[in-house]
Design a protein around this nucleic acid. Structure first.
Length: 644
RNA sequence: GCCGUUGUAGCUCAGUGGUAGAGCACUUCCUUGGUAAGGAAGAGGUCGUGAGUUCAAUUCUCAUCAACGGCUCCA
């Protein structure tokens, strides 16, 4: 007998060789039917794998994270089985579970696969699932495994085997399909009740674009049709707040074929938002001791050679224009221009920290397939600034930037993000990263200290730094689940030297400043794209393109409506009168759909009493108020940038 | 850039080898109506672009451009 300890601390005795599924059955049949896998001593195991020694045990169902990923990984095997039956002789790479489902990477040889094939595969999978085939685990000696896949002619699995040690290799078989796999898996295929293959994509082998491209098929499965339906419903809901859809509906931005891909045109409504954001940035930066500067959109090649950007960035810069033998590039970043401003006049330690800010327009030639609405564009307006400081000032300055981030996030109510400390990768010094090993380690530690001492939660990620230093990125997710960097705060110990930036220190010696690059509001493009989704288009009054819409019940009240309008305008509130010949219900509906924060319904009663009937978007009728009182309240709400 | 899908009116989308339709939006008229769609009439498209097959192409084929879903990449 052996002791099995459960999550609640209870200990029960079982025969050696018992499985988690047996244990579940001993508790209840209902539970046993739901078991997907088990955590044995903290490791996820097959529910059907015998337990031979004392262990802690947690039974995993669909509701556990480990349960879902096991379910989806097993689904990937089931999909592979149906693919192999439809396309005999295909070769498989890997088929992991992902955040929402699973995929399998496949080499189809010369064959093609279409959306229609996915529907056929779904049918085949459902048919195979119904056979309730067990997933059978088998330990295999390495030599035998190599023999198996050599006979099968599958070089991908042989490549995988190279990295594995003899004694740790297992095969899993369900039905007619056998795969090299660490597991774990479901007890049997019958648990997979609802199947949706979502899309076909190309994926480079081992994620390297120099390698052959495999076909990746994504899918998602559930233990019941109801859960699949709910999931698909949720995806539909998410699409409703996609910034590309809202951007069109609310007339925020547009693209035009003649202007070019990735070059957004900001419509009047979007421009209002841009200007409000710039106003916020300018106020905040003024308070924080920044100086504003303005720089040209182009510069000579020599500057980007000095900065070192050219060898790293050339592929994502628009090609140069050449005049009189000199190459000019559209700027892809503002830093070098700002460095030149620093260098324009001799500096003393008394001038530091020097903080230069600009909403800089940059152009980056992103690959066509990478463009994505406003989130990934080729023309961007960056909330940029560079802080030049001494090493002694660094902590204070970096912390102040961090505080500015948090202040902004509070204003916008941004709470779903991850701060990511991006570090260098020592093996790539001199290639992806500037070859200054000591400085990397030193500055990375300083940044880490700021995060720790300010109690900012963060994750560390190697091999994500900028080429000139470590950085903190703020990661967010779009409505459809794609991850983006919203804002960035970077250390730069390289460009100061490259540009020979110097200041005279206390000892009358020349010294090189440290540089902080920071963009708390990222770019207008990505930030507004994010805000559209964050607010689902319902901007707080201070950001709303139109803040108040006056809705006269009939044109008899038009004169009074115009009186109210002129008062609103005088108070600096963006407002309009709906003077269309429509019924009030229609005017309200249209204004609600345009997500205007305040509607003023005006009829005979309001006109006679000098009042306005207030309706708040999404909240309905708020009753009547004296017109002047309403104006004062809205004005305050806007000035305080309240969320509403 | 690569793999896959799509491209019809301002928007959302039907449809067809014999040069096109709906709803909303728009214009005009009727209606002056109190908190999410009043009624009628009208106007609007060389069916993304270029070539090919055909007596005939928006429809079939190819190329190209753009968008979308991924990969790679990134603020």
């Amino acid at each position: 007998m052996m002791n099995i300890t459960f999550p609640d601390g209870a200990v029960r005795q079982y025969e050696k060789g018992v499985t988690a599924l047996d244990i579940a059955k001993s508790i209840s049949e209902g539970l046993a039917r739901k078991i997907i896998a088990a955590e044995v001593n903290g490791e996820v195991w097959d529910a059907t794998r015998p337990i031979e020694n004392d262990a802690t045990l947690k039974l995993l169902t669909w509701d556990d994270k480990g349960g879902k990923s096991t379910f989806w990984h097993s689904s990937a095997h089931l999909m592979a089985e149906s693919i192999e039956s439809m396309f005999p002789g295909v070769k498989f790479w890997v088929g992991p579970a992902v955040e929402n489902g699973f995929y399998y990477d496949i080499d189809l040889g010369d064959r093609h696969i279409s959306e229609d094939d996915l529907r056929k595969l779904e049918v085949k999978m459902a048919e195979l699932a119904k056979q309730n085939n067990a997933y059978v685990r088998k330990a295999i000696p390495k030599a035998e495994a190599i023999r198996y896949f050599t006979e099968k002619g599958d070089e991908y699995k042989l490549d995988l085997l190279q990295g594995l040690n003899d004694g740790e290799i297992t095969f899993y078989t369900q039905g007619a399909f056998t795969d090299l796999c660490r597991g774990p898996h479901l007890p049997h295929t019958g648990l997979i009740k609802a199947i949706k293959l979502t899309n076909i994509a190309g994926a480079y082998w081992k994620g390297d674009e120099k390698n052959k491209q495999l076909i990746r098929i994504y899918g998602v499965t559930f233990p019941s049709q109801k859960q699949l339906d709910e999931y698909l419903q949720m995806l539909e809901e998410a699409k409703k707040r996609d910034h590309r859809k809202l951007g069109k509906e609310l007339a925020i931005f547009t693209f035009d074929d003649d202007v070019g891909p990735g070059l957004p045109l900001w419509l009047p409504n979007g421009t209002v938002i841009i200007e409000e954001l710039e106003k916020l940035a300018k106020e905040t930066e003024e308070d924080a001791g920044y100086k504003r500067v303005v720089t040209p959109h182009i510069a000579k090649e020599s500057m980007y050679l000095t900065s070192g950007h050219l060898p790293y960035y050339q592929d994502s810069m628009y090609p140069p224009m050449e005049l009189e033998g000199i190459k000019y590039y559209l700027k892809a970043m503002n830093c070098p221009h700002h460095h030149k401003i620093f260098a324009a006049e001799p500096k003393s330690y008394k001038d530091l920290p020097l903080r230069l800010a600009e909403y800089g327009t940059c152009y980056r030639y992103e690959q066509s397939g990478e463009l994505f609405g406003l989130m990934r564009v080729r023309c961007l307006h960056m909330n940029d600034a560079h802080i030049y400081c001494t090493k002694d000032q660094f902590f204070q300055e970096f912390k102040a930037v961090n505080d500015m981030y948090l202040k902004y996030f509070k204003i916008f109510g941004i709470d779903k993000y991850v701060m990511r400390l991006s570090l260098h990768e020592p093996s790539k010094l001199g290639q992806k990263y500037i070859n200054e090993p000591e400085l990397w380690i030193e500055t990375e530690e300083m940044v880490r200290q700021v995060l720790k001492e300010t109690g900012t939660p963060y994750v560390e990620v190697p091999d994500e730094g900028a080429f000139y230093g470590p950085k903190i990125d703020v990661q967010i997710w779009s409505a459809i689940g794609r991850e983006f960097t919203l804002a960035t705060n970077q250390v730069d110990f390289a460009q100061g030297r490259r540009f020979k930036l110097e200041y005279t220190n206390h000892n009358n010696e020349a010294d090189t400043p440290l540089i902080i690059h920071r963009a708390p509001l990222g770019t207008h493009e990505r930030f507004i794209g994010f805000l559209l989704e964050h607010y689902a288009g319902k901007f707080p009054a201070w950001l709303a393109p139109l803040q108040v819409k006056i809705l006269p019940i009939s044109d008899k009240f038009m004169d009074y409506a115009k009186t109210v309008l002129s008062k609103l305008k005088k108070a600096g509130i963006r407002s309009e009168v709906d003077d269309r010949n429509e019924k009030i219900g229609k005017k309200i509906r249209d204004t609600e759909l345009m997500k205007v924060p305040y509607m003023l319904v005006i009829g005979e009663k309001e006109m006679n009493e000098g009042k306005v009937a207030i309706r708040r978007q999404g909240k309905g009728d708020l009753g009547t108020k004296d017109a002047d009182e309403f104006i004062q309240e809205v004005k305050t709400e806007i000035e305080e940038r309240r969320e509403g």
